[in-house]
Every structure is written in C-alpha cells, then in structure tokens.
Nucleic acid binder design. Structure first.
Lengths: 213, 213
DNA sequence: GAGGTTTGGTCTAATTTGGACTAAGTTAGT
DNA sequence: ACTAACTTAGTCCAAATTAGACCAAACCTC
C-alpha cells in the first residue's frame, strides 16, 4: 500500500516549489501553459495527485474557503527534498503518438486522393497547434509573464514548440512533392530506398556535427 | 461487454491488411519499425489485441505449429471494411511527453551547473534517438526494403524523424547560448519576453506562409 | 549435456484516461 | 426579482494501458 509518487505528482510538486497553488490553478496551468505540450495529463489525475502529495507529507493542504470549497496546497520541506532528488535524476527521451501519421502510413499509397486529404488534414492540425501556441504567447505578453509563468525556462520550452512546428511544416512541404510525382508501382521500392538513403546521409551528418563526445 | 476496437488494434489490422502475420512478427514490427516512433505500445497490449480482433471476427487466427505454438492472423473481409472506415476518419494532432524537458523546465534557471548537465543529457538522448533511427534504416538497406517494410509511406514517415532530430538539435544549440550568457536575476523577465516575442514572430510567419487556406 | 539466447508468449497490479456527474457562484436578460 | 446559462471547482468510476515479472520450448555453442 506504499503509495509511490509519479511523474505527474512530481511536476505538480515542482510548481508548488515556486508558490502555493489551489488545485484548480494547478489544473488550469497544466492545461494551458507549455506544460500541456511537455506532459499532457487528464483533469482527473491532476485533481488526484495533490491529495496524494498531502497524504505523503510532501505538501500541505489548507481549505481556504469563503463559501465555495477551494483547497490550497503548499510544499513542505520534505517535498522540497523529494523534488530536488527527482530533478537530479535522469530524464528520458521524448515519446510521441501521432494518429494522423499512423493513418497516412497505413493508407494505400496509390490512393492519391486519400493521401492528399490526409496531408491537408495534417497541415491543418500543425497550423492549429501553431496558432494555439501563438495564442498562449499573446496571453502571456498581454498579461505580463509574471502572472502565470515567471520562469525564463518557460520561454525556452516554448521555443521548442516553434522549432517543432517549423520542422513539421518543412516535412509536409516535402511530402507534397510525393503527391506531385508519385512513384510508379514497380519503381516504388527504389523510390523508397532513395528516401532512406537521403535520411541516412542526413542522420550521419547530424550525428557527426553534433555528437563530438 | 461490447468490446470496442482501439487505435492499437486498428494499426495491427492495418498491418494484417498487407499480409498475414504471426503475433510475434506483429510485435517485433511494432517495436522495431518506424511505428514505434508513431505509436509506441507495450508488448502485453500488442499480444492482447490480435485476440480481440479474432473475437470480433475482424481477423482469423490459425495456430500454425510444427512443435511450438505460433498463432498466425489474417484479415477477414469484415476486418478490411472496418479498417477502411477507420482510415477514412479524422486523425489527430501529435501528443508528446518529454520528461527531460519537464525537468529542465522545473530546475531553477540560476543553477547553471544543473541546467548544463540537463542540456548535455538531452543532447545525448536526441543523438541516441538519431543513431537508433539510422540503425533502423541501415537494417532496411541491408536486408532490402521488401522484407519488412514495403510501403513507400514508411520511408516518408522516417523522414519526419529526421526533421525532428534536426529541429531538436537546432533548439539545443540555441539553448547553449543561454548557458553562455544567462540573464541576470532582475533582467530575467525582459529576457524571457524577448524570447516570447521572437517565438511569436516566427509563428506568425509560419502561419502566414503555410496557411493560405 | 550444460548453459545462454532467442522465440513466443501469459499474467497481474498499478497507472492513466475519458467522460459523466455535482453543485455552488456569477453574469445577463427580462 | 427570477431564471437561464456559464464558469468554477471539483468527484467518481469503468475501461484502457503500462510496466515488468514470469514461463517454457527450441536453438546454438562449447
């Protein structure tokens, strides 16, 4: 019954290390800040984890309530210690799940109509993501950073989203050329091989240039 | 008790549409091909889903076994219909989870040692991912595409991984400049604002250039 | 013929999600 | 002053998913 503390709980603890938050604020921040990009979590979990932190003595819960219930959490010294230990530990590569790409992968590549539609849909999705990121930034610019997101780190994390959007759009542009000139049925294997060789070359160059360890 | 068919099951169905596979082959492919990048799933689920497909009549299971047990699945006409309907449906933006970045986000930005170590770790992770992708490509090049991964789509999906690695490394290079010249405590807010404005400008340009719908 | 590796899986607890549900305060219109 | 609609601030639970330990047969090597 030894409750263990998971990634979600640690990240909430990380926010509590900066100041006390009500659960609602924590949830709103996790959903609306760049954290939603780095660690998307459902509401129900976000509401559960602070309770666990309190049970474990890593945070202190105080029901501050004129009228409506509203629980405010603050970090304890034990919490700070646990957070510090966790932050010192190793990270982990990013994992992604990309349903549209999966569907593209599984559609018959000779069905150029379906492929074209999927590509258009993916472009829309990427642009929507970009627009959302932009809206987030504009919210921060209008209200002043300090309001929700004081750390310089947040602005750096946001830059990753920008680089990602750019990469994604560049890739989509590349794919458009597929539609413009799809390989014939018997040349498909060679065509794919050409792309693999191109990818391999680029990867080798990247590894060489950046990995002088 | 109406079993529903999930994304994992659909993607396995998509593979079965190409040819019959044994469960083991399906698992190996999901783990070692670019699908592991698009839809990472655990072994236990990958072993469970084909059974469900069989129960629902979307696939047909045949125990082909000289000696050892080995179940081979093939798609049924109902399976093909279900797959087609699913593929025609909408996709979904990519979701990611990036533990290292989360930790970077939560570390105190004035602790340049910790930040530096985290950045170095992230670079290692990205390079490892790139090396793995390269190894995958080389496996395909050596054995011939046809063996496991016949679709041209696979080579295009792989290109996304390349674009992603490139973007990630460019971002890391940008972050290095943080270490070289960290903002002073009282200039931190302005410094972050500068980055936000830069991001906003780039996002607006991207949206304008690519989103002429 | 002993030991290690690969093949081909099963099983379980714990985690996580998705989504329905509540209930109180707040705002806008009549 | 009354009420409808919306936002805030959550709870609850079944179902999906993961992590990872476990198992056993077949193969390879010495």
């Amino acid at each position: 019954m030894n409750e263990s503390i998971n990634i979600t709980a640690y990240s909430l603890l990380g926010l509590l290390a900066k100041r006390p938050w009500s659960t609602y604020e924590l949830v709103a921040f996790m959903e609306r800040s760049v954290l939603n990009y780095i660690l998307p979590r459902t509401r129900s979990q976000l509401y559960n984890e602070p309770k666990k932190l309190a049970r474990l003595g890593l945070a202190h819960a105080r029901v501050a309530g004129a009228g409506r219930k509203r629980t405010v959490y603050s970090i304890t010294p034990e919490g700070r210690a646990a957070l510090k230990a966790w932050l010192a530990g190793p990270g982990g590569a990013q994992k992604m799940e990309y349903l549209s790409l999966l569907k593209l992968y599984l559609t018959d590549c000779r069905d150029t109509t379906a492929v074209g539609e999927r590509l258009a849909g993916m472009r829309r999705e990427v642009l929507d993501t970009a627009r959302e990121a932009l809206a987030q930034i504009e919210r921060i610019e209008n209200t002043g950073v300090a309001l929700e997101d004081t750390a310089p780190m947040a602005s750096l994390a946001t830059r990753l989203a920008v680089h990602h959007s750019k990469a994604q759009l560049a890739w989509l542009d590349e794919l458009e050329s597929y539609l413009a000139d799809p390989p014939s049925a018997d040349a498909a294997a060679d065509w794919a091989m050409g792309h693999y060789r191109h990818s391999a070359r680029q990867l080798r160059a990247l590894i060489k240039r950046h990995g002088d360890t």
